[in-house]
């Protein structure tokens, strides 16, 4: 069933909150990765708000869905969504990356907060997600494993070992969401290491694979529904996004992969994201 206008607006608002929180968190930490979470915000918000069965009430239920953030450097946006779902205190968000905070620079497994797995080293997580999917099936759980990945992470050979195993062992309850923004640390993919057509690759590995506009909430929702209904293969959503989406000076700029905005840049970004001037002043100081 298609999203109602109201539901779509709620998801768009959650995505805007992800972008605002990401800018504030990375600014407050004076380091971190703003670009990726801004680009992923629309599909992450659609997943978390509409599909992923994880909230404060079921966090310890064994048969709930699981989420693994393979591109762990983009965790600011992930933490924002966990806060929006009541798993993390909002106040805690600004401790991101600081000594003693549970909100580590890359996710550290913490089931009380709904963080299902430790990540940060690219390439490892799809294998882990395959294992989680196989365990859910063995246990007879009607749960889905969602795994985020990226074009940069797709350069790791282990991703393709996992992709082979997922299809072979029938991990049909697994959906990977690949953030395809054509950017990695050293620049655009075409200049560093071209991964070419990821949909064709996943397809060749035996997956149900589709290209999706990663900023079109209706299209993302429809693709997630189709993935859940696909019972013969694992599903790959190749989400075409722009790094830094929503903040014009970060848009499609590899330089914003892992640099914190200064006060002025954070102020500009928050204003562009629709935060009122007085609130921005209170946030940035």
């Amino acid at each position: 069933m298609a999203l109602t206008t109201q539901r779509r607006d709620e998801i768009a608002e959650a995505a805007r909150q992800v972008r605002i929180d990401t800018v504030r968190m990375v600014h407050a930490a004076t380091c971190g990765h703003p670009g990726g979470p801004l680009g992923m915000a629309d599909f992450m918000a659609t997943l978390f708000m509409e599909h992923l069965r994880l909230d404060a009430s079921n966090r310890h239920a064994p048969d709930r869905d699981r989420f693994v953030l393979g591109n762990g450097h983009t965790c600011a946006g992930y933490y924002s969504l966990l806060a929006q779902k009541g798993l993390i205190e909002r106040d805690e968000l600004l401790t991101f990356r600081k000594f003693g905070s549970p909100l580590q620079g890359h996710p550290h497994r913490n089931l009380d907060l709904g963080i299902d797995f430790s990540t940060g080293s690219l390439g490892n997580s799809l294998s882990v997600s395959v294992g989680m999917a196989l365990a859910a099936k063995l246990n007879g759980w009607d749960s889905r494993i969602y795994s985020a990945s990226s074009d940069g992470e797709s350069q790791e050979g282990q991703i393709w070992e996992a992709a082979t195993a997922a299809a072979h062992h029938g991990a049909t309850n697994l959906t990977v969401l690949v953030d395809f923004n054509n950017v990695q640390i050293d620049g655009h993919m075409r200049d560093v290491m071209d991964v070419r057509d990821l949909r064709v690759k996943y397809d060749a590995f035996g997956w149900h694979a589709v290209d999706v506009d990663g900023h079109d909430i209706d299209a993302i929702d429809a693709a997630l529904v189709a993935a859940r209904e696909e019972t013969s293969a694992p599903s790959a959503l190749i989400l075409h996004t722009k790094i830094g989406q929503g903040v014009s000076f970060m848009h499609d700029q590899p330089g914003w992969h892992g640099v914190a905005p200064n006060d002025e840049q954070a102020r500009d970004a928050l204003l562009e994201l629709g935060v009122a001037e007085a609130d921005v002043a209170a946030m940035i100081g």
Binding site: C31, G32, G72, Q104, G105, H106, H108, S118, G120, S121
Partner: peptide, 8 residues
């Protein structure tokens, strides 16, 4: 390496 944490 600092703020990146234990994975790094």
């Amino acid at each position: 390496v600092g703020e990146d944490g234990k994975s790094h």
